[in-house]
Computed example of a mutant assay.
Amino acid sequence: MNDNAKLYSSVGQLQKQGIAETLQKYVKLVRFKDKIKVLDVGCADGGLTSEILVPNLPPDFDEIIGMDISPKMVTYAREKLKANAKFSFVQFDITSEQIPEKFYEYFDNIFSFYCFNWISEHKHPQALKNLYKMLKPGGYIFLVIISNSQVFDVYETMSQSEKWAPFVKNVRETVSLYHFIEQPQLKLNKFLKSAGFDCHLCTLEEKCYTFTNLAHFWEWAVSINPFYKKIPENKLQSYQEDYLKEFRKHKNVFIELSNREEKIRKPYTTLVACASKPEEV
């Protein structure tokens, strides 16, 4: 994704609304102990961690660590939440071959929101094995993953155009692997079981978010676009025009005119999974 932390922080309402709704519906499946230590994988700017996740945790939680692959996101989150002693943030690639020794069976609960859709299929097993290693026996993980979104189709289409192919490459290594397969919940369930987890929930959720105007949508689209920084500056205007043209074509995009501004209603689909590590391993 784009690692512009300030932009991501300012336009991330789609993510916050979607995760808040999902947690309200399913967090009851997660078993919490007293004085828990919590990990948020793919924390980005820390907004979801502090504003959405924390209110769903027991008030007596001991510690929460946000983890992200982007040094810029981690630096931003640290500055943003430095006043709270229970928060800390670390830069780490969850697909790495080894985890930091101090994190082995360290966490009671692990959450990850809209992170695993950035992880390619061949790296999924390692990422889940790492979660398993970091989780205490009896601990729970809770994952929310984007499985279907119109922006993935736009990337795919633009990667096939002569004009944008030099900049939009390896799309299927960059966007959610679950977008391109039928019954993605079966795939995720298989991954979880292979990593050693007992799976309690693995389901698809239909979501929707309405952007108040085209400018709002475009800022959000840029904030998650992994190809945007690869576009030459003198081609950015043309890229925006072509991107929006392709996006408008999508059958699941709904646009209405209100006070001379376009409101964009964007449905999308998420995978929601809750799983636990056996007490005795």
Rank of each mutant, 00 (worst) to 15 (best):
S258T: 10
S9I: 12
M73G: 05
P58Q: 10
D60N: 15
Y76M: 08
K263L: 11
V90Q: 13
V11A: 08
N213D: 14
F107T: 14
A273Q: 01
Q17K: 10
V41I: 15
V144G: 06
D45V: 11
F167M: 05
F211Q: 02
A20Q: 10
Y239D: 12
G66Y: 12
G18K: 11
K123Y: 08
Y114F: 15
W218Y: 15
Q24P: 01
F103G: 06
M67I: 05
N84R: 01
D242T: 00
Y140F: 15
I69V: 12
M134N: 05
V27R: 08
F180W: 06
L188D: 04
L186M: 01
V272D: 00
L29G: 13
N117P: 04
E246H: 08
G18S: 13
P278A: 02
P267D: 06
A165V: 06
V30A: 11
Q13G: 08
A85E: 13
V41N: 08
T49P: 06
W164C: 03
E246W: 00
C199Y: 09
M158H: 01
N117E: 08
I64T: 11
F167P: 05
K82T: 13
H124E: 05
I36N: 14
V144N: 10
V168W: 00
C115L: 02
K263Y: 04
G42W: 01
G66E: 08
C115H: 07
V175G: 00
K80R: 10
F142A: 06
H124M: 12
S159E: 08
P226N: 09
